[in-house]
Simulated scan of single mutants.
Amino acid sequence: MKATREFEGLSAIVTGGASGIGLATARTLVARGARVAVLDLHLGLDPGPVYAIRADVGDSASVTAAVGRAVEELGGLDVLVNNAGIGARGTVEDNPDEEWHHVLDINVLGIVRTTRTALPHLRGSANAAIVNTCSVAAATGLPQRALYAASKGAVFALTLAMAADHIGEGIRVNCVNPGTVDTPWVRRLAEQTDDPEAELAALSARQPSGRLVTAQQVADAIAYLAGPLAGATTGTALAVDGGLRGIRLPREGLAP
């Protein structure tokens, strides 16, 4: 099937774009015609035909400088994908205050810093869109994810508030809620357990589809929400989770 080019003439910034979902998103947007700048703290991987700019979403000055440079290189800004984030394991007893502050600072305030810097540029676009990478953990209780879930619950609420605040300016704001995605970060988490292969198998089995979500599947959802085809869509969370949020299958041997 011939690739669509709905992003022809549009410019996009993707934070956390050097690996995983962010990298897949950047490449997808480029393939569909966009000019793309990747902002990431670690630029070790080749992000492909994009502008790669080092940025720390935990630092306002870094974000301001990186967004400014990106807009200059791109010649404007139409799409912002707030994808940068970090994870955490544990119950409310397990993570110290310092870790809570750090994860919330990156996952929530990182979106705030990048968005408020990008908004003046987005207001000049006829296809202004913001997509935040949230998580199924924002709406589904998962074990050993208290801190991470709290941060993503805040991202979900922030997405809705931003959508309400900026709809009058023609800026659409949505988020994707991935399930467990086969990314380097998930594999690093699995490697921290006693049996990484068993952990990956359990993560796959947790989703009704029986398999991990791919980074490309999430990237395709982000691209839809960011593009002109979703021109009437704002304030929406799109689940890409193999059915985890919406489907309950009976246990083997039990009647539904």
Rank of each mutant, 00 (worst) to 15 (best):
K2Y: 11
A3P: 09
A3F: 01
I21M: 12
I21T: 13
A24Y: 14
A24C: 11
T25P: 05
T25W: 00
T28D: 11
R35W: 08
H42A: 10
L43D: 12
L45T: 14
D46M: 07
P49Q: 00
Y51W: 15
A52W: 12
I53C: 09
D59P: 06
S60P: 11
S60W: 14
A61Q: 10
V63W: 01
G68C: 00
V71A: 06
E73R: 13
G75Q: 14
D78L: 08
L80T: 05
V81H: 02
I86H: 00
G90W: 13
T91K: 12
V92A: 12
V92F: 10
E93Q: 12
E93M: 14
N95M: 05
D97F: 06
E98Q: 09
L104H: 10
I106F: 02
N107I: 10
N107M: 06
V112Y: 02
R113M: 01
A118S: 12
P120K: 04
P120H: 04
H121Y: 13
L122M: 08
G124H: 11
N127Q: 08
A128M: 06
I130S: 07
V131E: 06
N132F: 02
C134Y: 13
T140F: 04
L142Q: 10
Q144V: 12
A146F: 01
L147K: 04
L147S: 03
Y148W: 10
Y148R: 10
A149W: 12
V155T: 07
A157H: 07
L160K: 15
L160S: 14
A163G: 07
A163H: 01
A163I: 01
A164Y: 01
I167W: 15
G168Q: 08
G168V: 10
E169C: 01
R172D: 05
V181I: 09
D182T: 13
D182I: 13
D182Y: 08
T183I: 02
L189S: 15
A190S: 05
A190E: 06
Q192I: 05
D194K: 03
D194E: 11
A201H: 00
A202N: 14
S204M: 00
S204N: 03
A205E: 10
Q207V: 09
Q207T: 00
Q207L: 09
S209A: 13
R211M: 08
L212F: 02
V213I: 07
V218F: 14
D220N: 14
A221M: 11
A221L: 11
I222Y: 04
I222E: 07
I222N: 08
L225D: 00
G227R: 02
G227M: 03
L229R: 09
A230F: 04
G235L: 05
A237I: 10
L238G: 14
V240E: 05
D241E: 12
D241T: 00
L244E: 14
R245H: 15
R245M: 11
G246P: 10
G246S: 15
I247Q: 09
L249T: 15
P250A: 08
E252M: 06
A255L: 15
